[in-house]
């Protein structure tokens, strides 16, 4: 285990106050893909401005479905979604870059949903790409010529180019190594601090959820419902690997949650 005690992520914590109106409020009362099989039981969520909320749960528990409903990609069988966000972006588990477009054209692709001239789109895409740490020669490359980490960073740049005030993350970091992952965490959190962007994230990585979020919702399957809500007690700037381990331990100390993740006696590796 790393013994590093420096802050895991050197960013300022967000200021979330209870009085602010919700940027997003989701209330699903029922959702099913198949008439006889309920995917989601009633579950509700309020997301404040500048807040980062994670949904964690075992694979197949319905968390991605909930995110897709919240993002407006699909409609719940019964329920409502209200959002006051002007611009919404989604980062998917796969990068979903268009393989026939260069990186720069991929980054500017999402801007077509706004009323901008081609020149404005290109300028904006270039600015964002530079801010995301892409070199000039990367911009003309096709996705097939980029590494996995760069592709996902390109997808993040495409999402950030539209300057979202609401960002959905559907396990976008799960295929990356720890270093690339940390780069992307920084980039996302920077956006959260700068623009007070709200984030709803789905992940199956408990540590990731604890590192990034203000609040963690735990979803249990059959049918999907929130079984627990956990406010992360530390400010983001105070979180370190060491105290995150303690947080994780306290979270998994709850027998129901340990059971959910098959993590009874979790101190043992196997």
């Amino acid at each position: 285990m790393p013994t590093e005690t420096a802050p895991l992520l050197s960013v300022m914590p967000s200021v979330s106050s209870e009085t602010q109106p919700s940027v997003l409020s989701v209330s699903v009362t029922d959702h099913r893909y198949h008439p006889l099989q309920q995917t989601l039981a009633p579950c509700a969520l309020e997301l404040k401005k500048g807040e980062v909320v994670s949904i964690i749960g075992p694979s197949g528990c319905g968390k991605s479905t909930f995110l897709r409903i919240a993002a407006g990609l699909i409609e719940a069988s019964a329920g409502t979604v209200t959002s006051i966000a002007d611009r919404t972006a989604i980062l998917f588990q796969e990068h979903r870059l268009l393989s026939w477009k260069s990186l720069l054209n991929n980054i500017s692709f999402g801007l077509q949903g706004q009323k901008l001239s081609k020149l404005e789109r290109m300028t904006k895409a270039r600015t964002v790409a530079t801010a995301m740490g892409f070199a000039e020669e990367d911009l003309i490359k096709y996705p097939s010529e980029l590494s996995g980490g760069m592709r996902q960073r390109g997808a993040l740049a495409r999402a950030m180019a539209i300057e979202p005030d609401l960002l959905f993350l559907d396990e976008p970091f799960s295929a990356l190594d720890i270093g690339r992952r940390r780069d992307l965490y920084r980039l996302v959190l920077h956006e959260v601090d700068q623009k007070q962007c709200s984030v709803l994230m789905v992940t199956h990585d408990v540590t990731e959820a604890l590192a990034l979020s203000d609040r963690v919702l735990i979803m249990a399957p059959d049918p999907g419902h929130f079984s627990k809500e956990y406010e992360v007690p530390l400010m983001r700037s105070e979180r370190t690997r060491r105290n995150l381990m303690d947080l994780e331990a306290s979270l998994l100390a709850d027998d129901r949650i340990a059971h959910l993740f098959n993590m009874r006696n979790w101190e043992r590796l196997v």
């Binding site: 993002a71 990609l73 979903r96 268009l98 999402g110 077509q112 949903g113």
Partner: peptide, 24 residues
Amino acid sequence: KELDEMAQSFHVPLLQRFWQVQAP
């Protein structure tokens, strides 16, 4: 279909969606 979903999430107009995402 994932790419259609991606284009939809950015509210890219239908015509552009056809030429840039589906046609290739």
